[in-house]
Design a protein around this nucleic acid. Structure first.
Lengths: 243, 243
DNA sequence: GTATCTATCGATACAGTGTATCGCTCGAGG
DNA sequence: CCTCGAGCGATACACTGTATCGATAGATAC
């Protein structure tokens, strides 16, 4: 190119500079996914768009399609990246209950750290490398444990645990989100919903709920999760373990 | 109006017809929500838009805003409408286990019938009349049952059950969706994912998963759900019931 | 019976979305 | 040295939720 220009313009002085060409930021799936996760953490899943990610990475939106085919794929990668935070590198827990408990708690903590996770978790097959590692770790917790020799038994056990964890964490995150709604209007939201709830309970149509609202103690968030998880583990031991 | 026209144009023959005014279809939250649910059932949640709903109901999109303030409110109403399908009018089950089991199964069946439900379920506080009735029914199953006198105990029990049900159903629906992906490309999807999975398992990094894929029997979908639910109920009895 | 007020409707508009298309430009390979 | 192919991104398209606002029709006041 420059050669050709050199033919047309004999001297540098007349020859124009090449068109301003912005330096291409180096991109990778990793950088894209990391940017997307930061966006989601800061402003919610709704703020994640190809245009905004590209803006952060100083690239054109269409460039992302060299790394991802669809937005769903982006979500899949985000979830798998977060799975890496859940799977413990090397667990110190011994015994199947302790190891499943550890996985459950790490799952919960990660979901609280990235509160958009529950919207994607289990919404599509999570079969990326880290998602598989997660299931592998769960299964490994039952490997060579007396009474869990059968594959079907193992699946029942981790199916029950993961089912509980997924549902419980989703409920907990939803509640947290609602409690501290978007900043300013927190007070307004609380007030409006409080009024609505008292009105509904006053109808007398929900006597048990009324009792609960009146008498419930509100333990620290994690304790209920832990206690119920223990119950699920008890149930697994009672019903599935064949030792 | 016509009077005024009558003054301007003395005879009918010169007086123009009033402007064509389309007959307004009668609207209600109920009709809107019903239309939205039909759309979601037929074409998925993604097909639910104010414009399409309005189209079905032969109204302008903006007219819906007289009944709903935002799309999230529409989703809330859809979920609450479906809760009505879950809550049994009058249960025949006796005993707390049977009644909680009935609720769990009705939840599952409803979620399978409306496979978009799991995407909204528990994603926002579901405190509409039917949502409250759902929780009321769950609590009522434990009312005056020996060993569940304490409100906190009751909450632990139904928290564990609902957690499990929510998570397990979400996982099941996701799997169903993936298996029969969008029609034609089912075969293609299965093939691509099968190849991917076998490749991943061949790496040897997931020995337990490999064992599972090899040895797992694939029972009818409902049976695993039921068995694991029984385990959860066992655990509740073992850990929470104070009788 | 007439005039005014008010609530509702929907056309239009706006900012944003995911993504298909397609020239352009550049670096690598023959 | 030239050609080819790949990567890039400007542009465009169809669509989204929703704010604005003039027009209208029914209700209300005199």
């Amino acid at each position: 190119m420059v050669r050709k220009q050199a033919e047309e313009y004999a001297t540098v002085w007349e020859r124009p500079e090449p068109v301003e060409r912005p330096v291409l930021s180096s991109l990778s799936r990793d950088r894209i996914v990391r940017a997307a996760i930061e966006l989601a953490d800061a402003e919610g899943l709704g703020a994640v768009s190809f245009r905004r990610i590209a803006g952060v990475l100083e690239a054109g939106p269409m460039r992302l399609y060299g790394y991802l085919a669809t937005k769903e794929e982006l979500f899949d990668l985000m979830v798998d990246a977060v799975y890496a935070e859940i799977v413990p590198a090397n667990t110190s827990a011994s015994g199947w209950r302790a190891r499943l408990t550890e996985i459950a708690h790490r799952t919960r903590e990660t979901a609280l750290r990235h509160d958009w996770l529950v919207d994607l978790f289990g919404g599509r097959p999570n079969i990326g490398p880290n998602g598989l590692a997660f299931h592998e770790a769960s299964l490994a917790a039952l490997d060579e444990v007396a009474g869990f020799e059968q594959v079907d038994t193992m699946m029942d056990a981790i199916g029950a645990v993961h089912g509980y964890v997924l549902g419980a964490v989703r409920a907990e995150v939803t509640e947290r989100r609602a409690e501290r709604a978007t900043g300013m209007d927190e007070q307004h939201w609380q007030q409006a919903n409080g009024a609505y709830m008292t009105k509904m309970l006053a109808t007398g149509a929900y006597p048990m709920l009324a009792r609960v609202v009146e008498d419930a103690s509100h333990p620290a968030p994690g304790t209920a999760f832990t206690a119920r998880l223990e119950a699920v583990l008890d149930g697994i031991e009672a019903r599935f373990r064949t030792a």
